[in-house]
Computed example of a mutant assay.
Amino acid sequence: MGERTSWPLILLLWGAGLGAAAQYGKISVIFDLLPQIYPDAGPALGWVVSLVGCVGILFGVVAGVVVARIRYRRAMLTALWIGAAVSLFQASLPPLPWMLLSRVVEGASHLAIVVAAPTLIAQLCAPQDRGLALTLWGTFFGVAFAVLAFAGHPLAYHWGVPALFVVHAIYMAVFAILLRIRLRALPDEGPQPVLSLSQILRDHVTIYRSPFIAAPAAGWLFYTFSFVSVLTLLPPFLDPAIRALVMTAMPLTSIAVSMTVGVSLLRVLPAVRVVELGFALSALCMIWLWAMPALPLACIALAAGLGLVQGASFAAVPQLNSTAATQARANGAMAQMGNIGNTLGTPVIAMAIASAGYKALPLLVAVVLGMGFGIHLLLGFLRR
């Protein structure tokens, strides 16, 4: 644990996280171009996007155990090099079965990065800087998707899809080289459990029975379920004249509030309290959106509330778990729960809207956010 924070190193780890988020986002932003590459694929094209998330659902906790076992620096560098190699392979536009297999490998690379990087950040930061550093880490998905939407799709459209994959491969390789030079290994915490199916099952039980290890992930499930579904399903209900403005402002507001108000609150409140505050405010904003449908100001306020949940959830990991190994397990559980939330949120809310109309969106999301608040209260009671 550092007494002084090396911010250049923290920014390098955050930059590596942007590359990991781009493993999702690079396919999402060019999804409309994939039918030209695989004209006979039909519905199977959806798996090109979702396989990375499926790997996270199945192996999120396993990733936490593996990363702790093989050590964080080694896991980070290996994952970056694998990510670079996979993107380079994808630039050849292989047949669909090989592309799908490459996405499974990419899912493993993604998991290793999103488990190792925040664990390293928490351990390498001075205690007083952890809240800021992990709040910054919490922005990696939003920032990466914004950059890809702004520059990635135009690059693929004008220079071809392979160009986007090659740029991503170079990006991952550059960060692997830079981190190999700058990143030091964390102190050895002794032998880790031998990996086996029975041990993996025991690890799941251990993690999700612990109100310390499981708490960040438990809240993260309800956050991702809500955030992704709202950003996906709310736009058709907004005034077309301001739709693009509101949908651009929402993720940017979430990041800005996380990095300003969220960081300030983390200096005076435990991270879990900030998460609870974010859930409560977000649930109230959904009631506001129920009373005043698709009101732009309520949408921005909702994004602000969710911004508090976003950064403070990562900051809660080291506050509740003192060792790198338990932090890695907590980050693995967050990856697992986050992928479940991302996968389930949009279809569940979409089915509710199909049967009950717009009103189902704010009411159901308000309930989900209330459950996020409630699970943190329950786990806090168990910790005491």
Rank of each mutant, 00 (worst) to 15 (best):
K26I: 02
P39L: 14
W220N: 03
S229V: 09
A283K: 00
A335Q: 09
L186H: 08
A241P: 08
L197S: 10
A173L: 14
Y171A: 04
V317T: 11
P95L: 04
Q128G: 09
I375S: 05
A214E: 06
I82E: 08
A217D: 15
Y24S: 04
A133Y: 11
G332V: 10
A316Y: 02
D129S: 12
A325F: 06
S102L: 08
F381P: 05
G345R: 10
L377Q: 02
Y157V: 13
S109Y: 02
V272N: 13
L344T: 05
G374T: 00
A354P: 15
P95E: 04
A117R: 14
M334F: 14
L80F: 01
A149K: 15
C125M: 13
Q319K: 15
T346H: 07
A325W: 04
T248Q: 09
A354H: 09
V317K: 13
V114K: 11
H204G: 04
A156E: 12
A185M: 08
V367P: 09
H110R: 12
A283W: 00
G190S: 05
F150K: 13
M1T: 14
V348P: 11
V67L: 12
Y24V: 03
F212E: 15
M1S: 12
G345Q: 07
P94G: 08
A316V: 03
V268Q: 06
V275S: 06
L148K: 15
L277K: 02
G107F: 01
G131M: 06
G305K: 02
H376E: 05
G305H: 01
A217I: 10
Q199Y: 08
Y358H: 13
P35Y: 07
A112Q: 10
F31Y: 14
L132I: 05
A63V: 01
P318C: 14
P8S: 10
V261Q: 00
D129C: 15
L34M: 11
V55Y: 00
T248C: 05
I242W: 12
V147Q: 04
G42F: 07
G2N: 07
A176E: 14
V230P: 04
G83R: 01
A217M: 07
W14K: 13
I242D: 11
F165E: 06
P95H: 09
M292L: 13
T346V: 12
L96C: 11
D203G: 05
L379N: 01
A325R: 04
P191F: 12
F212M: 11
P191W: 07
I255V: 08
W220C: 04
L238R: 02
T139W: 10
A366V: 00
H376V: 05
S92L: 03
M286N: 01
V348L: 13
V161S: 05
G56F: 01
E3T: 13
A304Q: 07
I82Y: 02
V166R: 15
R383W: 07
P318I: 07
L252R: 07
T260H: 12
L369A: 01
L148N: 11
L238N: 03
M334V: 09
T343Q: 07
A330P: 15
P216M: 10
A84Y: 12
D32K: 10
A41L: 15
R71E: 04
L306K: 03
V62Y: 04
M76H: 06
S6D: 13
W47G: 02
L183K: 06
V246A: 14
V272A: 11
P251R: 13
